[in-house]
Amino acid sequence: MELVCPAGNLPSLKAAVDAGADAVYLGFRDDTNARHFAGLNFSHEQLREGVGYAHARGRQVLLAINTFARPDGWARWQQAVDRAVALGVDALIIADMGVLEYAAQRYPEQRLHLSVQASATSVEALRFYHEQFGIRRAVLPRVLSLRQIEALVEKSPVEIEVFGFGSLCVMVEGRCYLSSYVTGESPNTCGACSPARFVDWQEQADGLHTRLNGILIDRFLPEEQAGYPTLCKGRFDVCGRVGYAIESPTSLNTLDLLPRLLGAGVAAVKLEGRQRSPAYVARVSRVWREAIDACRRDPAGYRPRPEWMAALDEVAEGARTTPGAYHRSWQ
């Protein structure tokens, strides 16, 4: 089982590799990838250096081109594929059928992974992308239960990668338009959810208001810890009751499910967080490296160590974690 770690910049890439990542995933510095944040991601030269650093240590570099290209911007997505192939990345992570078509036809030898943003949740969807574009691995959306994942891996024509840790998308990825409904910009079109330039923090008499393009996402009392107004993680009023109607600020953590993921034949575990710091990347990568190694040595005797869980909780969104959809009770 491979450990796939996030790299938002060169220091994070090095931190991930040094902490034991088998592969790092990253993106170019534009809207061709789903973490298009200011100051993040790689220029052509930085990617060249990053590929060199990883390859010299026997690790892989996976490049995400996983937003959806509109006709007027098509050249940018095409060039991203061309540049990535020229720099020798080990795989392209793609969501858009048009980009897949271009990459598969122009570079038939290039290894292609299906991004989580392609929203493939069943064996028939995986067969589609495998037969049409020759994908060799798919990243599963965070909507399936553990049993559903186990059943899917058994029948899948391609390798399966799942999310192990990090900020949790509640909605099926690639088909969520909540962010563009509020701001005009979404992960699909602009590579960002609830973009920072639409965020407003307002100190008011009744607490700290967090807004996204004018919509009140939450209100915090002085003793409450205020979180970033990701729009599905705010407190709202449904039937006169105020609460986290969609999801609370929390991170996914599947450390205790590792033996079953390993036993099921999951090919890779992905850690979320390209927007996080090199220190975060080093910490979560190291914990997961130790855990995967321990689980491989003795799957039956494996238990997540308390210090691993504590280390992950500390950097989790809202300082809390959940097994998410992997456990049916969460659904």
Binding site: M171, V172, Y181, C232, R241, A245, A325, R328, W330, Q331
Partner: peptide, 20 residues
Amino acid sequence: LPLAHAARCFTARAHGLPKD
């Protein structure tokens, strides 16, 4: 507008019930 779909049922959640 159909804006999103999830594993979780939000109507059930609003009533304190799990999807199952």
